[in-house]
Design a binder for these strands. Structure first.
Length: 328
RNA sequence: UUAUCUUUUU
């Protein structure tokens, strides 16, 4: 069952829930009983591809005939699905439901083994609220979790800091960062990347670079996302030279560019009307096994349109269509 | 063996 669950998980990560379901069939045929990992994996897989309704149907069935006792993994998947469609209220209701369920279970001796919402649940909802700019609600939930004995981690703080920055509430963001450090919660690369992005989006590319330097001094290794973010900052600040320098630097250091890297560079080149070089990079990325996506093509098309080169823009649009991308 | 946070077009 272990191996079959792992296989299901792999299929789900490839967005092939259909294949994951065929593994479920196999599990049953082989005489195994699917466990909570099996069901949770499938529920999460369905939610990942946006099929919340089907996930709920499966949940009902799993509870009724599969004997599933929903746990933090199960609820976590549902909460994420709800937040992603912007229904933070429903996500919060689910959290309340978990609490009630657990309290009832406790009153009856705890036989169901249900548990209180854990850190993942809080983090997911807090992040959803922050993304919808409902920072007050997010901060309230943050206080609540602490009161209930759930310690926030770097993910919690990262969401809150980003939420505050997005609303221009820098001072409070800084306070949260200090609170985090005071709690001995270590920052991670994702947080560095968030902060770099926040600086860049504010046009403070120099501050972003300082931040990276500081973190490197403290022993952090920036990753490709860090550099992509900074590169995008350069591009948006009209500093194509610096972006190119960074790009060459990556190659020199043996860091693998990903499709974000190429898309950002191509966008930058197009912005400055350097379409030949953009197309050159398009060829290079394909040669290196990085397939262009709709972002890539749209960037180049916009570049052509900027030059009033309608024929080339249309030609590229045809290529996009032939590759099955949606176009305007 | 399953869950939460970061970067690219409009």
């Amino acid at each position: 069952l272990y191996s079959l669950n792992t296989l299901m998980c792999c299929y789900c990560q490839l967005n092939r829930v259909d294949l994951a379901f065929s593994v479920l069939g196999k599990i049953i045929k082989l005489g195994f009983t699917p466990d909570s990992v099996s069901f949770n994996t499938l529920i999460d897989g369905l939610i990942h591809v946006g099929k919340l309704e089907q996930a709920l149907q499966l949940l009902t069935k799993a509870v009724e005939v599969g004997g599933l006792q929903p746990d933090n993994f199960t609820y976590g998947a549902l909460v994420k699905g709800l937040c992603r469609k912007g229904d933070n209220a429903a996500a919060l209701s689910l959290l309340r439901y978990m609490e009630e369920d657990q309290e009832n279970d406790q009153l009856h001796g705890g036989h169901l083994g249900s548990s209180m919402p854990n850190l993942f649940i809080y983090n997911t909802i807090i992040d959803g609220l922050c993304k919808d700019k409902l920072i007050t609600e997010a901060l309230n939930l943050f206080s609540e979790m602490k009161n209930k004995g759930v310690s926030p981690d770097v993910v919690t703080f990262n969401s809150l800091i980003r939420g505050l920055c997005n609303l221009g509430r820098w001072e409070e963001a800084r306070e949260k960062l200090n609170e985090m450090l005071a709690l001995n919660v270590a920052p991670n690369v994702l947080m560095l990347n968030t902060l770099v992005d926040m600086f860049c989006k504010e046009g403070k590319v120099a501050d972003a670079m300082d931040m990276i330097e500081l973190m490197v001094k403290r022993g952090f290794t920036p990753d490709i996302v860090t550099y992509n973010t900074l590169m995008d900052g350069f591009v948006n600040a009209g500093k194509l030279r610096d972006a190119v320098k960074l790009f060459s630097g990556l190659l020199a250091e043996g860091l693998q560019p990903d499709y974000y890297t190429y898309n950002i560079m191509i966008k930058g080149l197009c912005k400055d009307g350097l379409l030949d070089q953009a197309k050159e990079l398009l060829t290079i990325m394909q040669e290196l096994g990085c397939s262009p996506d709709e972002f890539t093509y749209n960037a180049i098309i916009r570049g052509f349109l900027l030059k009033n080169d309608i024929p080339n823009a249309l030609q590229l649009r045809d290529i996009m269509v032939s590759k099955g991308f949606a176009t305007y």
